[in-house]
Amino acid sequence: MDTELARTFLVVVEVGSFMQAAERLSVSQTTVTARIKTLEAQLGRTLFDRGRHGALLTLEGRRFERHAQALIQVWERAQHEVNMAPEQRQMLAVGGEQSLWSPLLLNWLVWMRQHHPDIGLRTHVEEPASLLDKVERGLLDFAVMYSPLYHPDLATELLQQERLIMVSTEPEGAISAPDRYVYVDWGDEFSRRHDQAFPTLRRSNVFVGLGPLALSFILQAGGAGYFRERAVRPYLARGELHRVPLAPEFPYPSYVVWSRERQPDGLVEAIDGLRSVLD
Rank of each mutant, 00 (worst) to 15 (best):
P199E: 01
Q79G: 10
V27R: 02
F64W: 10
L131W: 07
H124G: 00
V74T: 11
L71S: 08
V110Q: 15
Q220M: 08
F48M: 11
E261T: 10
F198M: 09
L10Q: 06
E189Q: 04
K134L: 00
D279E: 15
S204H: 11
V94F: 06
A174W: 08
A129T: 08
I175E: 11
G120W: 00
F207H: 14
A143E: 14
I36R: 03
L92Q: 03
T3D: 07
R193M: 09
Q69R: 15
I175L: 15
L201I: 13
S28E: 08
S204Y: 12
G223C: 14
P199L: 00
P199N: 05
L140F: 11
V94N: 00
D279G: 15
A214H: 03
L104R: 02
N107K: 12
R137H: 11
V13I: 08
D2N: 15
E81H: 09
L139Q: 13
L219R: 06
G223A: 11
F48N: 05
A93K: 02
A34R: 15
V125C: 08
L43A: 07
D195G: 09
Y235M: 14
W186D: 08
Y252P: 02
L149C: 05
L106F: 03
L267Q: 02
Y255W: 13
E249C: 02
A224H: 05
V256E: 04
D153S: 14
P199H: 01
H194A: 13
A197Q: 14
L154Y: 11
G187W: 11
F48W: 12
L215Q: 06
Q220S: 15
R50F: 07
F227Q: 02
V125D: 13
M1G: 14
F48C: 03
L100I: 06
N205F: 01
G225K: 05
G209Y: 10
M19R: 13
T200Q: 11
L158P: 09
R35Y: 03
Q98S: 15
Q90M: 08
